[in-house]
Write a protein that binds this DNA or RNA. Structure first.
Lengths: 345, 345
DNA sequence: ATGAAAGCGCTAACAC
DNA sequence: GTGTTAGCGCTTTCAT
């Protein structure tokens, strides 16, 4: 009674309204009509709830209902604008459906493990995995076993029962590289934060080989998956070559690294695209505002992932196990297409 | 028993281990020692839990404990990289303390109301308000009344009991403008997404007046708080003036709008900073990678807000009601300081 | 050193 | 139409 920190419960409302908890639950849950509760009682309940500033306790409700109306987005990092955008988009879609969004960052396999074991605790209905789940496929299986709906973006290995929304990374790599080749480039560097055993790289290679251009290991450079990382990788590249040998184009693993590349090139006094062309990946909104505007491999995977998750959650439609989202090349300025080819080759 | 979707409960673990739920709770809660449970029993419990893949149900635990180890960040938008950064930073700090982070977007007063009423449901221990709480001060008071710890960034009006972490916006506005004046600018435009009754604008005005420069309404332009909005506001500005009258500098409400300005200026064939200087606000990491790199009013408010929240949550230190985080001007390229003044005025 | 029992606040069968 | 009852799965006195 004199506990300052005790919020009103449905029991309190029931007492004040002279009704039962059941009735309160029914009325406040919006199921007062349907020939269940009389108008008069409904009014009394609503008024009592207002007087007491009653807000149902989510924890109790969710525990009882075995559903939380919440989803979690698992991403490897939030410093990366690409993933920040993912979260933003997901939030928008979730909000429209009355779901709340929880974000977890799984920056390492151990962190990932922790995150998934957290999720097994039943705090969310659905999970969108934006991380590579190979190391934790068994944990994901556990989540499913517990009734947590999962979808994942771009899994290398499929986990049965978990829809996988992917884009054709190999084709994306091909598309970007081929575009550069058509513009006359023959020395096209590739910067990334992972090794060469990726689909994007394979596409890059295929485009080169298709054009009869040798794939040089020297044209490959590593950096972290950040703007700074892109800058680092590009610096390495620039130091590696004499002016004559220098690559005439750089294909970056993603927009973030491409932006870093843009910066280093400018600092080195090189013009983009005239001296070096740059192509990014992901079509982030950022890329439209760089100087020069970034040509990038674009797709709508994020939106699709969230949509599939909600389809599943709301059982509103059948869901495939595998989706492939189409990709396009957003040709802007950094590739030099607008200023014509370069007449090489 | 044959319910595929029923995860093991502490009761199941207890039975398998031949112990009671109490013991299971004690052991798995890390309080098995302290002369409470025998080593042998502890071992049996742990093994049983592992065999059953037991993960405690958060909902039940939180309901009982009346604490959730979760915080919510309320921001007006996630498309805005500034707020995305806020969330990222908060996530990092929260993670280190074992808290999970939930993000809610309150884009309108109504949405804000919904969000706060959600928070009243007891799903989180703490809330960081990144939105202007004037319209909902009473709701915030309710949260506090329910034992939810709140902190807010940059409240106009203080809510008693809620620490407010602010930066001196007026001084920030002054700092940026004064810097431009010292570089020789006399026609300094101001672009924003709100009206002129803001502290930043006041600082802008004070700097101008202090230098004996008249404040012209014409030099003020509105646009949404996005990159596109900054572009729009800048376009308006450019159309409004002949080449002779054109402002020689633009002070943007924040980095996001400044980036939009950068783009439009470039498209108009104007060089930054030689033809038009640009200064942003907030010191986002993005600004370091624009071309030219953005001069911006920088501060560390976000980190402080989250720190104060955790101080409060962990009762680890006394907390003031009001913090003022220092601001500095991060001088980079877009203001032209590096290429010397412009010899005007 | 361990267990029985109560109850967090809610919803959902199942009466009447 | 409305109320009674029985839990959701956990932690926590309080016994023993």
């Amino acid at each position: 009674v004199n506990d300052k920190f005790r919020a009103a419960t449905s029991f309190d409302v029931a007492r004040l309204a002279g009704a039962s908890q059941t009735t309160v639950s029914l009325v406040l849950g919006g199921r007062g009509d349907a020939g269940r509760v009389s108008k008069a009682t409904q009014k009394r309940v609503v008024e009592a709830a207002e007087r007491l500033n009653y807000v149902p306790n989510r924890l109790a409700r969710d525990l009882r209902r075995r559903a939380t109306q919440a989803i979690t987005i698992v991403v490897p990092s939030l410093q990366n604008p690409f993933f920040a955008e993912v979260v933003g988009q997901a939030q928008l879609l979730a909000d429209a459906r009355g779901y709340s969004v929880n974000v977890m960052v799984a920056s390492s396999p151990e962190a990932e493990r922790r995150v998934l074991s957290y999720l097994a605790g039943g705090s969310v209905d659905g999970v969108m995995l934006g991380v590579s789940p190979e190391p934790v496929a068994d944990l994901i299986r556990q989540l499913i076993g517990r009734g947590v709906t999962c979808v994942m973006a771009q899994a290398g290995a499929a986990v049965p029962g978990v829809p996988n929304i992917s884009i054709d990374l190999e084709y994306g790599g091909f598309l970007a590289t081929d575009h550069l080749i058509r513009l006359g480039h023959r020395r096209i560097a590739y910067i990334t934060d992972v090794d060469t055993r990726t689909l994007k790289y394979l596409g890059y290679k295929r485009a080169l080989e298709g054009a009869g251009i040798a794939v040089e290991g020297e044209l490959f450079a590593l950096g972290a998956n950040t703007m700074s990382g892109g800058a680092v990788a590009t610096s390495i590249l620039l130091e590696r070559f004499s002016q004559a040998d220098r690559p005439t184009a750089i294909f970056a693993y993603n927009d973030l690294m491409a932006i870093g590349a843009l910066r280093v090139l400018r600092e080195a006094g090189l013009r983009v695209p005239q001296d070096v062309a740059v192509v990014g990946f992901d079509g982030t909104s950022l890329g439209a505002f760089t100087n020069p505007a970034l040509t990038t491999v674009s797709h709508t995977r994020n939106a699709v992932v969230v949509e599939v998750l909600f389809k599943l959650l709301e059982k509103s439609a059948d869901v495939e196990e595998k989706y492939e989202v189409p990709i396009t090349l957003a040709v802007r300025e950094s590739c030099g297409a607008s200023i014509g080819g370069r007449g090489r080759g």
